[in-house]
Design a protein around this nucleic acid. Structure first.
Length: 508
RNA sequence: GGUCCGUUCGUCUAGUCGGUUAGGACGCCAGGUUUUCAUCCUGGAAAUCAGGGGUUCGAGUCCCCUACGGACUACCA
């Protein structure tokens, strides 16, 4: 077969925010396209008008942009196959449905939704499943069971109708899946799905196949939930006579709930306390807010790295990949077959790794707005000195304040447990002597401080651990925090002395 | 219920040509460093490869069965 240009698409439905499973699908498409020098297309599948959610499309575009997933063609960037919104392609689909009708691969059906609903309920009551297929279609109201006159009468009268695919009574359909291998299904198991709805819109199945063909898509990489309908899609390609340009399929495994089983859903995030959406989303109807990775402080590259490894691996022991490296290393062959559970701890670890990779200046730029909000008015230079002291201790920029507030504000209380453990009646006297030493330390540099303070403690034969920890208590109010001497250097002589005096007065 | 897909440490996974002490990472535990905590370093526990049958000198790897899990089963995508 001749070399075919690689063209893949990500085709979400704007029915709400894109969840991380969708982002991962987009990512794998993107990596696959970039790896092979192919094109990446964003198509919006909005054929269901009843489920349209305002803002969802913009949300999808913004999310993907934040993730660094770029498109060569699509609803927001245009391209040779525009429009890329299926609602705007509405007029194009009818002719394809008609084509199928003409070839006898599809038929009109006049059953009302209510009548079908009743049939389904009856079947359910009899512990069976109603299927619109070879065994039932002759008993239903359609162009197969009705006379030609009756059909044209219904049509000219303007009766509501749908167009259904005609599944062969016998035979097999074979789907070649890049991830799952050969999947065979008996036609008898398939049902006559609606291709064209009574509102004049195609269903996913028709629109999807037609657009993939028209847009010359070479590979369909989508979620596993589409695997059961893939045989019908293959059949459609056969019916249209497009088998020689039919895309190759790859059905991705699902993202599962971290606890228990089942696929990850919006509710799980709320329940387990982690975002399932890339960006924060406010439901336009209910005003309900769902958290996002961006707002939770994840770096896009960390988020993408984490997501990429949920279902794919490089085959090596490398775990940290930037987008460039992901593109280089990606291959569908290394995509797993089984669903993977999201792991919050590992997601945090990834973010920590990326935070460590950022320069102090980058972190300062992200942190300063947070500090300003807390009315912290210190020089940028000071902030730049704080960052190296605390960056190793946090997963997120948002956690930096908790690790450093005492460098900006004096402690107002002192940990009782530490007082009990380290404080002694002679401590005020010892501290006063240390203040004297501090006052004599000139310049107040890290090196000087260290030799002066430690030298004094040794000289006076004091307990190093006790004094140092009390000094930390004076500075921080508790027993945690970065290196003591570094903190004291940063705080400066006046503040250090003041904090010791404060502590002496406060602790009795 | 039916159809299809799946099943290696708690979690993400390596393993793609049958011969490995079944490897790595997160998390967990211990020791070291840091006179604190975190980081970091070292080490450890952790998978009878879902179970059972085959095939084979030899099976996580091939075949069959069973179990369990999941997806789908709309004029939704």
């Amino acid at each position: 077969m001749a070399e075919r240009e690689i063209r893949v698409r990500f085709a979400p439905s704007p029915t709400g925010p894109l969840h991380i499973g969708g982002v991962r699908t987009a990512l794998y498409n993107y990596l696959f396209a970039r790896k092979s020098g192919g094109k990446m297309i964003l198509r919006i599948e909005d054929t269901d008008q009843t489920r349209f959610v305002p803002g969802a499309e913009d949300y999808i575009v913004e999310s993907l942009q934040w993730c660094g997933i770029e498109f060569d063609e699509g609803v927001h960037v245009g391209g040779p196959h525009a429009p890329y919104r299926q609602s705007e392609r509405k007029e194009m689909y009818k002719q394809y449905a008609d084509d199928l009708l003409q070839k006898g691969f599809a038929y009109y059906a006049f059953d009302t939704p209510e009548s079908l609903d009743t049939l389904r309920k009856d079947a359910e009551a009899a512990k069976k499943t109603f299927v619109y297929n070879a065994v039932t279609r002759k008993q239903l109201r359609n162009s197969l069971s009705m006379s030609a006159e009756e059909v044209s009468e219904c049509l000219s009268r303007g009766d509501q109708y749908v167009i259904r695919i005609l599944i062969p009574e016998t035979g097999q359909v074979v789907v070649q899946d890049l991830i799952r291998g050969t999947v065979k299904v008996d036609c008898a198991q398939l049902d006559d799905k609606v291709l064209y709805k009574s509102d004049g819109m195609p269903t996913y199945h028709l629109a999807n196949v037609v657009d993939d063909h028209l847009m010359n898509i070479s590979h369909v990489i989508r979620g596993e939930e589409w695997l059961p309908s893939a045989p019908m899609h293959v059949l459609l390609y056969q019916y249209f006579g497009w088998t020689d340009t039919m895309p190759q399929f790859a059905h991705l495994p699902l993202l599962l709930k971290p606890d228990g089983n089942g696929k990850l859903s919006k509710r799980d995030g709320d329940r387990l306390g982690f975002p399932v959406f890339p960006l924060r989303w406010t439901d336009p109807k209910t005003a309900e807010v769902s958290s996002g990775y961006r707002e939770s402080g994840y770096f896009p590259d960390a988020f993408i790295n984490m997501l990429a490894l949920l279902g794919w691996n490089s085959g090596t022991e490398q775990e940290l990949f930037n987008m460039k490296e992901l593109i280089q290393a990606f291959s569908l062959e290394h995509v797993g077959k089984s669903g993977s559970k999201f792991d919050l701890e590992k997601a945090k670890w990834f973010n920590h790794q990326y935070l460590l990779q950022k320069s102090d200046a980058e972190l300062a730029a992200m942190w300063i707005p947070v500090l300003r909000e807390k009315n912290v008015n210190v020089s940028e230079d000071f902030i730049l000195q704080v960052i190296p002291l605390i960056k190793e201790r946090v997963h997120f920029v948002s956690e930096m304040w908790d690790q450093s507030w005492f460098l900006f504000n004096n402690p107002e209380s002192y940990d009782e447990a530490i007082i009990k453990k380290r404080w002694s009646p002679e401590m005020p006297e010892i501290l006063r002597n240390i203040i004297l030493v501090l006052l004599a330390t000139e310049p107040f540099s890290r090196e000087n401080l260290e030799t002066m303070v430690k030298g004094h403690i040794q000289e006076k034969n004091l307990n190093m651990g006790q004094v140092m920890n009390v000094l930390r208590l004076c500075m921080v109010g508790s027993s945690t925090g970065p290196d003591l001497i570094s903190m004291m250097t940063l705080l400066g002589k006046d503040l250090v002395v003041k904090r010791i005096e404060n502590a002496i007065t406060a602790i009795k």
